[in-house]
């Protein structure tokens, strides 16, 4: 079954100060998709997600979205101002900022927000300042904010950067649960083995889209080398591709000389 189209990019290019950050992107996101964007640092992942979100306008080509598509955005943690004076609860209810809402968080909103926080394992932390949390908790506060908006499409920018293995598993489980509940998901990541290999669909990006398909199809040495600009080997373990750094042998040889 093919879901309805949520977002469609056609030959879309985006630029900062006339330098292209992404070029001629053709990409369709449908209801029920669970897509990972992979690519090296600076390859345009954040730019692509922001274009989907609508905060960057393409300089070329088009992007069309389902009318009134509700999106939740989880920013890359590095871009958040952690020193800003807000509590966890205040961040979560932020998306309900339409004109006419009073400053005070209402009882209903509070109850809704606490449910979301509970579900993300953040129960009891609602009055903490956002800086007074662990990396994984900080990440989840922004997932909570996005979910509070009840999105049809959840957009996450590197949801597992800087978190430990256990938190990464938790995030992955959470996303899989949300996906089962009908939320479509697009995320970006550097993490090939820990995250990307588990997703049903991957898009390899480096200025342009290099490949788009299932992990088994796109995680090949040729495609990865073209995406990341570095040699990589791919093993298969339990039916899943596992990426190994191609420079391994060289480094191992140099290190053994030091030993």
């Amino acid at each position: 079954m093919i879901g309805e189209v949520l977002v469609e990019c056609a030959h879309m290019s985006c630029a900062y100060n006339s330098t292209l950050a992404i070029k001629s992107i053709d990409l369709t996101i449908r209801k029920g998709d669970f897509v990972g964007i992979v690519g090296p640092s600076g390859s345009g992942k954040t730019t692509l997600l922001k274009a989907i979100l609508g905060s960057i306008t393409p300089v070329e080509g088009h992007i069309t979205k389902k009318p009134h598509l509700r999106m939740g955005y989880v920013p890359q943690v590095e871009t958040v101002d952690w020193n800003f004076p807000v509590t966890v609860l205040e961040v979560v209810v932020m998306t309900r900022s339409s004109v006419g809402r009073l400053p005070r968080v209402t009882k209903d909103e509070r109850a809704d927000a606490l449910l979301v926080l509970e579900r993300l394992g953040l129960g009891g932390l609602e009055n903490r300042h956002i800086r007074e949390l662990s990396g994984g908790q900080q990440q989840r506060v922004f997932v909570a904010r996005a979910l509070f908006h009840r999105p049809e499409l959840l957009v996450l920018d590197e949801p597992t950067s800087g978190v430990d293995v256990r938190t990464r598993h938790e995030v992955l489980h959470l996303l899989a649960d949300l996906h089962d509940e009908g939320v479509s998901i697009i995320l970006s990541t550097h993490d090939l083995n820990g995250l990307a290999a588990h997703l049903p669909r991957l898009v390899c990006l480096n200025l342009e889209i290099i490949a788009d398909g299932s992990p088994v199809d796109v995680m090949t040495p040729e495609i990865l080398e073209r995406t990341f600009g570095a040699p990589m080997e791919v093993l298969v373990h339990g039916g899943m591709p596992v990426v190994v750094d191609g420079v391994g042998a060289d480094i191992a040889e140099r290190m053994s000389r030091l030993a």
Binding site: L53, M71, F84, M94, T95, R96
Partner: peptide, 18 residues
Amino acid sequence: YRAFLFATFDPEVAQVSG
């Protein structure tokens, strides 16, 4: 108040949240 808070903390997401 809320719009001011959101726009000050996170203008990009505020924009796409209406």
